[in-house]
């Protein structure tokens, strides 16, 4: 029997954004079994299905780019597999695309270097409440009054991008360290300006090293001298980063096939 790897592009929206990364993995694992997919298993005392997600999405974020590489024990029809999965996935989780990847190709997880985010920032003039940033999708802090509009936020983004360095304090397991966030921001611009929030689209480093969407939002607020009252995050796409060139998963898949055929010397020419 021939193995097969499917790269699923899933959407995580609505209530599903409240499912944590680990719980999302477990939810997919259950769905594979319900859909009757012959997912390959790891060896050992505690075998688990061979699949990986490209990126760990923060709790509260929605996404249209949840990529799961799933290894199957035998070949199935990819479209059929996607349909079967969609029959057994809970509300808010849907397979939107499926691509076959050669067995043995590097998992997307190991290739991801950047991610394109939408951030809805609800900002307020500083003063009334604590300026600590809420978690992604966090509750608003107290404090009233009109916040900055898209124009002001756009100016701040321009200012940030013009800086050679952007120091960012990161706390991890009680240890505080400062890193430079500037090289981790590929691009950032205001997309829309409506209602109480300003929508920013940003491409940030992902994988290792990475800049979390919430950290970026905090930087925007700090730079503007604002207070972040609410943040809503949505993932648009992930990319491999080749010296600044962003390569999307579809192309990575095509390239994997080209390499595969080249290695097999099947006369595949560019």
């Amino acid at each position: 029997m021939t193995r097969q790897v499917l790269r699923l592009r899933l959407e995580k929206s609505g209530d599903a954004r409240f499912i944590s990364h680990l719980d999302f993995m477990r939810t997919l694992t259950h769905a594979f079994v319900r859909a009757g997919l012959p997912v390959a298993l790891t060896q050992g005392f505690h075998p688990h299905p061979r699949f990986s997600l490209a990126l760990a999405l923060p709790l509260g974020a929605s996404s249209e780019a949840e990529y799961a590489d799933v290894e199957l024990e035998r070949t199935v029809d990819a479209m059929h597999a996607a349909r079967e999965l969609n029959r057994v996935l809970p509300p808010g989780i849907r397979v939107r695309k499926v691509q076959e990847i050669p067995v043995g190709a590097p998992p997307l997880q190991s290739q991801v270097g950047a991610a394109r985010w939408l951030l809805d920032l609800e900002l307020a003039e500083k003063g009334t409440a604590a300026s600590e940033a809420p978690p992604v999708g966090g509750a608003p802090a107290a404090g009233e009054g009109p916040g900055p509009g898209g124009g002001e936020v756009g100016e701040v983004l321009t200012r940030m991008l013009a800086q050679p360095h952007l120091p960012l304090v990161r706390e991890k397991q009680g240890k505080v360290r400062t890193l430079d966030a500037r090289p981790l921001i590929r691009s950032a611009r205001v997309r829309e300006d409506g209602g109480p929030s300003v929508r920013v689209e940003a491409v940030l480093a992902a994988g290792n090293p990475s800049l979390r969407a919430a950290e970026f939002a905090r930087l925007v607020a700090e730079t503007g001298g604002w207070e972040l009252r609410h943040l809503r995050v949505h993932l648009l796409e992930v990319y491999a980063d080749r010296d600044g060139e962003l390569v999307d998963p579809a192309r990575l898949g095509e390239e994997a096939w080209r390499d595969y055929h080249r290695n097999r010397k099947l006369g595949f020419e560019e």
């Binding site: 209530d15 409240f18 499912i19 944590s20 719980d23 769905a31 996935l89 966090g138 509750a139």
Partner: peptide, 18 residues
Amino acid sequence: ERLLESVEKPARYLGTEW
């Protein structure tokens, strides 16, 4: 949504489990 955003484990309260 705001209520769900404000708790540590919102998945306890969704009611949309399979």
